[in-house]
Design a protein around this nucleic acid. Sequence first.
RNA 1: UCCUCCUUAGCUCAGUUGGUUAGAGCAUCUGACUGUUAAUCAGAGGGUCGUAGGUUCAAGUCCUACAGGGGGAGCCA
Length: 478
Amino acid sequence: MFNKRIKIKQLVATEQTGDEVTVMGWVRTFRNNQFIALNDGSTNNNLQVVVELGLLDEAILKRITTGASLKVTGEVVPSLGKGQKIELKAKNVEILGDSDADKYPLQPKKHSLEFLREKAHLRFRTNTFGSVFRVRHLLAFAIHKFFNDRGFIYLHTPIITASDAEGAGEMFRVTTLPFDNPPRSQDGSIDFKEDFFGKSTNLTVSGQLEGELGAMAFSEVYTFGPTFRAENSNTTRHLAEFWMIEPEMAFCDIEDNMNLAEEFMKYLIQYVMDNNRDDIEFLDQRLAEEEKQKPANERSEFGLIEKLQFVINNNFERITYTDAITILLESPAYKKKKFKYDVNWGIDLQSEHERYLVEKHFKKPVIVTGYPKEIKAFYMKQNEDGKTVAAMDILAPGIGEIVGGSQREENLEKLEQRMREMHLPVEEMSWYLDTRRFGTVPHAGFGLGFERMVQFVTGMTNIRDVIAFARTPKNCEF
RNA sequence: UCCUCCUUAGCUCAGUUGGUUAGAGCAUCUGACUGUUAAUCAGAGGGUCGUAGGUUCAAGUCCUACAGGGGGAGCCA
């Protein structure tokens, strides 16, 4: 009868004493042959189990080691010590699973994130990763709640795709052809007619195009699924496999799109603050400790909670790309030639430019709109100036681009013309263009990188620490 | 892919201008203590100094290559 146990989260929150309860969990540390810090993953707060002298045989006591799993039955009593209100006075302790203290890698001490990254299968059992993954879960839940409450349909777009048109990045090939001796066409090229799908296929880099098809029927849809990019990116904010949220709304322009994205981000932050204060407070302290290690000039001005509260309470700054270029050109940093990359109208904003705008100039999230059409995707709505498109990127402090979106070009002729200019296969994309042929409407959407959002809310600086098992170039362990 | 830094005990790190037998804290083991909060105290064990070459009378220390990792950049979410 395992389900008779009480979760530690529920138990440590109680004021009521005198009940006899059963808990199960893993030993974090065993102090003084008497005090077990027990954790079952439901909360970062360990339950203190008190084992009175003489209750257990020496042989059992020796098996209560860090990492071992226990079933404990006992009485809930007020704690005599400081640091917790109640504790469990053990009547019976059963070892469910031993953990060899000599071999178990996690110790009751501070481990480096780099070390834990290599022990990713065990790191859930640490305070930091426990908090990160509970927050990650809550964010995922809040995403569904946000959209469901607003009448959006959750659309599952395909993982395997034959479309190569989005141009969002290098793709992973999906094939069942033998790689040592693939079938060849007469001209020597690989004959994908022989492949599983009868054509060349890849893992998806975006569900947007399919999302647009859904929006043309349901008015509002969103996707939330895995996305794959075979870029050789080795940074703290890129993964080869990551999760992305892509809402797509019919009857919606760029302003509506920005409003929704801003409301969405604020909602997610507020939801976590309201529903998991414990973990956010732990992460706030963890970040503060980490900041202390840094030289004073590299420390961030805000703590984690301060930052999140600030984002909720203030409007995102909204500027055009042209404004952004002007601000950069007039900045002291530019005049002192601090930028590595030159600034002029037409460039893609570099990290250093985004950082300046967000972290130095405005000191809050910034939405940049109206980018030159040359540096943006084919499907974005062409503005009347003939030079810019109705794109919008949200730049977040410490993360950079967290949202990328746009109003879509709903005019068939303009869209086809742009596709031809960019040498995209118009014929193959006929299914997509049907949205513009049959009842086209103004529509818009955006993509939010889920792990980047988790980074932003948890304050974790490396994206590999907010996904369970990171896939990055040359790394596919576990 | 580029730039840069790092790799010494299970973990985190120290190791001087190249010079005897490579150190500390924590962890582990043994013992003591028993209301602890990363418990404390005493003792013990634990190292091919990332790998392969090279320079030198002598290399953890200098040089080269490779591997792994961190940070930054590009690409992007």
